[in-house]
Nucleic acid binder design. Structure first.
Lengths: 114, 114
DNA sequence: CAAATAATCAACTGATCGGTTGATCAACGA
DNA sequence: TCGTTGATCAACCGATCAGTTGATTATTTG
């Protein structure tokens, strides 16, 4: 995944309205009007949010007459968790290693005292 | 996890410099100067990035004389993957359900034809 | 064809963001 | 004690962003 893609994806998620749209779409696909319904902001604003999500690759859109249903893309979400997990796991590995070193030092200390 | 926390965390990750800092810290803790070294931007700019990451709860800072080492917090990263996975898994469930419906319809069709 | 509906485009505003320069603070070391 | 170093604060600039209003493009339906 390129840097620009990660920029787009994470900044797309950095907005409560867009996360709410993600949450809604996880249950089923929906149109702009359906997605806009629970919000107080204008339909145009929601349309912009949807374009941001689409540009980020988090959702896809199809054609159904004059409607443009939105669909959540689980694979895109998985790519993000993949990126995060890379560094989370590495950090956890490092902490375990450090714990090991500390335990060894403590052990040495006990021996020195005995 | 509150909405504001998710805002802060995801927008913190929506910047390549901050992601590079995350990547660096996953290998070991480091000071501002160490983190700034590979960048062309000023140390002040890096300091701001670090404050953003700290505010978002993704990293913590300790005191070591005049140094302020940064440490990556794996738990914060896990909270983010947790949020994402909630909706990814729900979406995948929905798609499987839909596949089931389509398979049933196709099956009905075959029966009708026989 | 005309009215209505789904969605977008265009232009504008206020706020936030990433970055800079210059000054300041606090801890260290000769 | 004084110069140096690690780090931050403050003020500013240009760009981007979320939201608005108003007009426009397609598609459906009477």
């Amino acid at each position: 995944m390129r840097d620009d893609d990660l920029d787009a994806a994470f900044s797309a998620l950095a907005d409560p309205a867009r996360r709410a749209i993600i949450a809604r779409l996880s249950r089923s696909s929906a149109t702009v009007n359906e997605l806009a319904e629970p919000f107080t902001i204008t339909k145009q604003a929601v349309s912009k949010h949807i374009q941001v999500l689409e540009q980020a690759g988090l959702i896809t859109r199809t054609r159904d007459g004059q409607r443009r249903p939105c669909h959540l893309d689980p694979a895109a979400l998985e790519a993000l968790t993949g990126w995060i997990d890379t560094y989370r796991l590495e950090a956890e590995r490092q902490y375990r290693r450090l714990d090991g070193v500390l335990a060894t030092l403590k052990d040495q200390h006990s021996k020195d005292q005995s």
